[in-house]
Design a protein around this nucleic acid. Structure first.
Lengths: 339, 339
DNA sequence: CTGAAAGCGCTTACAG
DNA sequence: CTGAAAGCGCTTACAG
């Protein structure tokens, strides 16, 4: 690479199989075979073709290949917000498996908007072999429509008839509620996430049932957004609810609420115990460090890509997996109620 | 949407302009014109064509369009690590401008590997109209080669002959060093980032010169990675350096070092003052909160996309902008040296 | 083992 | 205003 002279002039036109064919004196179809179906061509021609390709810096044009084959060799991963730390491990897990299968992964971001999610999904879908839809805000029917067009795996949310991967929130939440109950908490609240989020509904229902089972009261408090700001904004509502502990939809919301508490002189955990969800980057940084229910996002990423790849190859779209384990991570933000 | 009957069967084949042409009784070329060059076709035909397109749920196939035109309508953004909070604002800024121009943005991640960066860039490049290369680990020559093939903008690093956008670190660092000096610090250290990072070199050189100007000594300490682990691992080396303040390559490293200090009973800021870079998500969460030099990543994202779009349209690849301002953000991790 | 041809879905001069 | 044709770069039956 360094110095084959200075960089080629701007308009450099990429080499095609026709260039290679001309140089080596064979038919373009032979070039295509030599490059893609090793063994289908005599060793010596293949050799010459490969050399010429290397000389010309040939790269096969994925667009052109996609037209006749319908395969692009890339997968799309669409999340509601790429800049949400929740997705870090998911991204890493997905990349790990994609890399192993020599598949390129491209990411896109629907910016928490269902409308944008839909249009982005459609646009992305046509340029990839399959789509991973993470924490979708779409309706089941819309997801089913997308899934009908091309292989798709829903992540962090089951959709009837569509392959999916999601965590089982119960184990982690049982740990959390047992701990709260054991410490003496009897009135708690769930600080909710987006209404359109399936996972929010799941967390609320599970928390509710587990709390009731244990003879605790539980209030649902709305938040304006699943972000730190959303948590901060909910401070007054939380105070008004008169509870001793809060389970937040996610760590971002919990951290936002934590910040507001500190600012208003509400001591955590003495006056209020706080539990988040996801164990994101930063959850252990706060003071007090945030207790949280962790799901294996890394595993979800791996499983989801593996499943999608399977669906693409064999058309095998085996159903839902709703069983990735969760666990409670105990940190300083939880204690016995102070009064 | 909802219920046009149940979702179409899996293999549903997308409608093409030929389908529309057949239904409306015109030539496919007319369909193409009606859809893309409003006005070039009689109002009534255009009308009929649009209706048929809507009926069939027609979406133009970007691959097929890209072949004759060479344009895909999408931009690629390649970063060294998508899960690094540093890039949050960059991503948002880039998306803002892309959306305004009805351009799709796809993201990819080189996982901190120069080799992977190169191959990903090449692969991505052929599927997009232009590439944003963020904090590249490649050599100038390699970047120049990529830039020769297709419009490219380097972000957070200038490259000779390649359009770029990068911050001017001096203003923020002057504030930081003036503060340290004023507080009485005389022996400080720079905890370095990746050697291959242009920005790391820039920060070191600037810190060095400014420190020397002020009669302070400054040591360079290596870190194993630009992550929290990298900062933690550097604890012993920092202690050995016998300094009263540390400037870290970035906030992640600073937060890692901070954690190690607390763990080993080194009080921050009394025993050691700490300053990071970038003001990432979480920098204000730690205890003590981290002082840091903030650059306008959001602006960089916006400018970079605007510049790339310009380069694609007019071939106008105006040069480097090395002037995005930085500022010091003062938080609790800095104080006068304690002994 | 390899060539010649047709086709993937679209765009765009070129005619009329 | 619209049709017919050629071409973008590749793949893949079909022959030989």
């Amino acid at each position: 690479m360094g110095d084959k002279g200075r960089p080629a002039p701007k308009g450099r036109v990429p080499a095609t199989i026709y260039d290679i064919a001309r140089i080596t004196g064979v038919n373009p179809s032979t070039v295509s075979r030599a490059l893609n179906q090793p063994g289908r061509v005599s060793a010596s021609t293949e050799q010459r073709i490969r050399e010429a390709a290397a000389d010309l810096g040939y790269r096969t044009n994925p667009m052109a290949r996609a037209l006749p084959t319908g395969k692009t060799g890339t997968l799309g991963l669409l999340v509601s917000d790429l800049t949400n730390p929740v997705y870090f491990d998911l991204v890493r897990g997905a990349e790990r498996v994609a890399r192993e299968h020599d598949t390129m992964l491209v990411f896109a971001d629907s910016q928490e908007s269902a409308e944008l999610e839909r249009s982005t999904a459609e646009r992305l879908q046509i340029a990839v072999d399959g789509l991973l839809l993470v924490a979708s805000r779409l309706e089941d029917a819309q997801i089913q429509e997308l899934a009908a067009a091309k292989p798709l795996v829903a992540v962090n949310r089951p959709v009837p008839g569509v392959p999916s991967v999601a965590p089982d929130v119960r184990p982690g939440m049982i740990e959390a509620l047992d701990l709260l109950h054991g410490l003496g908490h009897r009135r708690i609240a769930y600080l909710a996430g987006p209404e359109a989020s399936w996972m929010n509904g799941m967390r609320w229902v599970t928390a509710h049932d587990l709390a009731v089972d244990r003879g605790m009261s539980i209030a649902e408090i709305q938040s304006s957004a699943p972000t730190r700001e959303g948590g901060t904004d909910a401070f007054a509502a939380v105070m008004a609810a008169d509870v001793t502990a809060v389970l937040a939809y996610n760590d971002l919301v919990a951290l936002g609420l934590l910040g507001a508490c500190l600012e208003h002189g509400v001591a955590v955990p003495r006056d209020l115990s706080l539990i988040g969800f996801d164990d994101i980057f930063g959850a252990d940084l706060s003071a007090p460090a945030l207790s949280t229910v962790r799901c294996s996002w890394g595993d979800m990423g791996e499983r989801a890509v593996a499943k999608l790849l399977g669906a693409i190859q064999d058309g095998d779209a085996s159903g839902a997996e709703l069983n990735l384990p969760t666990e409670f991570v105990s940190r300083a933000s939880v204690a016995a109620p102070g009064r």
